[in-house]
């Protein structure tokens, strides 16, 4: 059986500067896979390439066995790959509900959409309470919830979350991580990029450590969590 997502020797550059220098990994259906690493390691670049916002200069990406090489971003969503971007990027001048509906932009089953909006409100009750409020007025954590809820609205086969805990209070961060845990238990396949390695690795089936554009270490979440070099470098232990 082929993996849901296969990345092989992927290389991405901004002009002459190569940000991702040939990485390979797989995401199996039902798994949570995490990419961890410091700022500038190439994690976000990798996700943006997978969703089609950036074009690779080399390597191959296959989603359900189909190459994504020259598929434009808006068609990749249609294939079942949703991306909740770093910094959340909700649409500030639209309401919460409008944001969620945009997540379902490519769907035309209005009954299903209504049901999924309700599901998002169940997952994040605070959003349901403020559905007519402009998204730009939400707190950081609430915006993150909205971004995740919006990404789920396309009923993705693979959900990519980029730094969902960035800039959040510890309580809010716990909430978000709990939600990811819940999604995982529902069987959602997730590719998670995080700086908070502890939280990400505790959740993940598989983890990859990235440094300056390369994968330097791979293993199960539990293995990496107990790896000495990882603990030193990313978990703040001496």
């Amino acid at each position: 059986m082929t993996a849901l997502l296969e990345v092989e020797d992927l290389r991405v550059a901004y002009g002459k500067i190569e940000a991702v220098k040939g990485i390979s990994f797989k995401v199996e259906a039902g798994q949570v896979v995490t990419l961890i690493g410091t700022n500038g390691a190439g994690k976000t670049t990798t996700l943006r390439t997978l969703s089609g916002l950036l074009k690779p200069i080399g390597g191959q990406v296959k989603f359900e066995g189909k190459p994504l090489g020259s598929v434009p971003a808006h068609k990749i969503v249609a294939m079942g790959l949703a991306h909740s971007p770093e910094g959340r990027h909700i649409f500030p001048r639209m309401t919460i509900e409008e944001n969620l509906l945009l997540g379902a932009y490519l769907r035309s089953d209005s009954d299903g959409i209504t049901k999924d909006v309700e599901r998002a409100y169940e997952l994040f009750p605070i959003l349901g309470e403020r559905k007519k409020q402009a998204a730009g007025t939400l707190s950081g954590g609430e915006q993150q919830m909205l971004a995740m809820g919006r990404a789920l609205m396309s009923r993705p086969k693979l959900l990519m979350l980029d730094e969902p805990s960035m800039g959040l209070s510890p309580i809010m961060m716990q909430k978000i991580m709990a939600t990811i845990q819940e999604l995982k238990s529902q069987g959602t396949t997730i590719l998670l990029v995080e700086q908070n390695a502890q939280a990400a690795l505790s959740l993940a089936d598989t983890g990859h450590v990235m440094e300056t554009g390369r994968v330097v270490l791979s293993g199960t979440g539990a293995d990496l969590l107990h790896d000495e070099s990882v603990r030193k470098a990313y978990l703040g232990e001496d």
Binding site: G52, A73, R150
Partner: peptide, 13 residues
């Protein structure tokens, strides 16, 4: 409001 994110929604910008 946000052309890149619009693409992530599946919008053909």
């Amino acid at each position: 409001q946000d052309p890149d994110t619009a693409k992530l929604m599946g919008i053909n910008t």
